[in-house]
């Protein structure tokens, strides 16, 4: 039956999406581990971390960014209040410079009294891991306070001895992520979309329902397939899921 073939292709596409997310989360787990380890040894040495110490993370951040220039727009750690001795509010964040091959350090306004204050304590990608201990996928959304691009942000909490230290996060260009999945979603063979928890389309194979638009359950033809993350790697839950792949009614 045609619908069985479709279900198989949809499952394959869902696995591919899951793999793409798993790869980014594996990197974030590694980055979070490095930051937590630095903090642990600073505690052992009774020598509180300073902002400049975070530059040690660059040795792993740089190759990760240059190795994925299309997909990974930026990555780094965002630090919780008063973890660092010299900076109450700080991020060690690197991104691809606009239109170039260079990497640039993200300079933001750390002064809470200023108009342009970069208030990450109200961003879902910081608040959800802090308050729940879960990982989170946010977006796609227009990231107007950071990169001005249409983005997905993935974040992983960093903690040590039950103290929340911040998050390790990555910005994924929504357009590049969609392009990566077009073949898999195209293989479904009829109009189909990948949508997030809120019904926002992340990728689609049809001009009638493009990325950024909303899709409702009533528009689905048959049951959607959930995107599942790799269960072995990480027991932590992930907020912002399930993402679903669904064929659309004609």
């Amino acid at each position: 039956m045609v619908s069985d073939v479709r279900a198989e292709e949809m499952s394959a596409a869902a696995r591919e999406v899951g793999t793409a997310l798993d790869e980014v989360f594996a990197w974030l787990a590694e980055l979070a581990g490095r930051f937590a380890a630095m903090h642990a040894s600073s505690v052992a040495e009774q020598n509180q971390l300073r902002a400049a110490d975070l530059s040690q993370l660059r040795a792993s951040i740089f190759p990760r960014l240059t190795g994925n220039p299309r997909l990974l727009a930026g990555t780094g750690v965002i630090v919780a209040d008063d973890v660092l001795a010299d900076q109450p509010h700080w991020l060690e964040w690197w991104q691809h410079a606009q239109g170039g091959t260079e990497l640039e350090f993200l300079e933001v306004d750390h002064d809470p009294a200023s108009v342009g204050f970069y208030d990450y304590e109200s961003a879902a990608w910081f608040v959800v891991p802090r308050d729940t201990g879960d990982r989170v996928v946010v977006g796609p959304y227009v990231d107007y306070s950071g990169t001005d691009e249409y983005m997905l942000t993935l974040a992983h909490p960093v903690s040590h001895d039950a103290r929340f230290l911040g998050v390790a996060a990555a910005d994924i260009r929504a357009d590049a992520f969609e392009a990566l999945l077009l073949r898999a979603i195209g293989a479904v063979g009829q109009p189909a979309v990948l949508a997030n928890e809120a019904g926002r389309v992340i990728a689609s194979n049809t001009p009638s329902k493009i990325a950024g638009s909303l899709v409702h359950e009533a528009e689905f033809a048959g049951s959607p397939v959930r995107v599942v993350l790799n269960q072995d790697a990480e027991v932590r839950d992930c907020a912002g899921l399930p993402w679903r792949i669904a064929a659309l009614r004609g």
Partner: peptide
Amino acid sequence: LAAAGQSSRLTR
């Protein structure tokens, strides 16, 4: 409002 319209260009 422009961001809710999901348009980076209009938002910019």
